[in-house]
């Protein structure tokens, strides 16, 4: 997994690629969110457009990130789901938990 982030005003967009799975993938996602929160950035968009695989550990890490960010008064939203990630979130009913967007401008505006 790889992750880079960029600021869009008060919102931070994290571009993620590869596999979010047990081990390095989940750990990198966790540390990225932790770093952002340490910098006081708690309006986070995870751009998953290049994530081609996620397992139950990765799903768990998404949920952990979501609840951790929420506890700080911020929000974590998802952008550009690939079919595999979309199907897994649908199967696990996490579509009812996460806000999911397909347009970056719209998701950034949704924080206002």
């Amino acid at each position: 997994m790889r992750a880079t982030y960029r600021d869009a005003g008060a919102v931070t967009v994290v571009d993620i690629g590869g596999r979010i799975t047990l081990g390095e993938g989940s750990a990198l996602l966790r540390s990225t969110i932790k770093d952002l929160l340490a910098e006081g950035r708690n309006k986070i968009v995870l751009n998953l457009g290049d994530v081609n695989y996620i397992d139950s550990s990765g799903i768990g890490e998404l949920v952990t990130g979501f609840t951790t960010v929420k506890k700080t008064g911020g929000d974590l939203k998802l952008l550009h789901l690939t079919k595999k990630v979309h199907d897994i979130l649908q199967l696990t009913k996490l579509f009812t938990v996460f806000e999911v967007f397909s347009d970056e401008t719209v998701v950034i505006q949704s924080f206002q």
């Binding site: 768990g60 199967l91 696990t92």
Partner: peptide, 15 residues
């Protein structure tokens, strides 16, 4: 359980 951080493995295998 929707916000549980674990416990989806068995479910996925069954699915």
């Amino acid at each position: 359980n929707l916000l549980s951080t674990s416990g989806r493995g068995i479910f996925l295998m069954r699915a």
